[in-house]
């Protein structure tokens, strides 16, 4: 079994990346490739579903940092959903909820795009 997997699907014009397993310096390039692929095809509305993400280190967090600026320049966003409390704590420790929309549920994250509200970071789940 591979230690990190990504599956990708498109729902209502929003691209969902489901990430699974351990995201560290070894596996982060896989996520980088996935983001690069989306940007290349001009897909900028991205939800990352972290339901099955067991672990994240700074190398994984760095991938989100690396792409969010480009995505937002193109009127899109990277929203995160379904995080376990353990993974959320790491994002929280670094202050990511100030910068990213982190939603409890994937459908909520998709609806944020459909509502076409302006991006207001800081709507972190508690």
């Amino acid at each position: 079994m591979s230690e990190f997997n990504i599956s990708q699907r498109e729902t209502k014009d929003v691209n969902v990346l489901e990430i699974k397993g351990y995201l560290d310096a070894h596996t982060a390039p896989k996520l980088e490739d996935a983001f690069q692929g989306l940007l290349k095809s001009s897909k900028y509305k991205i939800v990352v579903n972290c339901k099955d993400l067991s672990y994240i280190s700074s190398a994984g967090l760095g991938v989100f940092m690396a792409f969010v600026e480009d995505v937002r320049k193109n009127k899109g966003d990277i929203k995160l959903s379904n995080m376990s409390p353990k993974v959320f704590n790491i994002f929280d420790l670094l202050g990511f909820p100030l910068l990213y929309d982190i939603l409890a549920d994937e459908s909520e994250a998709i609806n944020r795009f459909l509502d076409s509200k302006p991006i207001i970071p800081g709507n972190a789940k508690k």
């Binding site: 940092m65 969010v68 670094l94 910068l99």
Partner: peptide
């Protein structure tokens, strides 16, 4: 974070 820096978090 507001400068979207990606390194040095470790």
């Amino acid at each position: 974070l507001s400068h979207f820096r990606k390194g040095g978090l470790g």
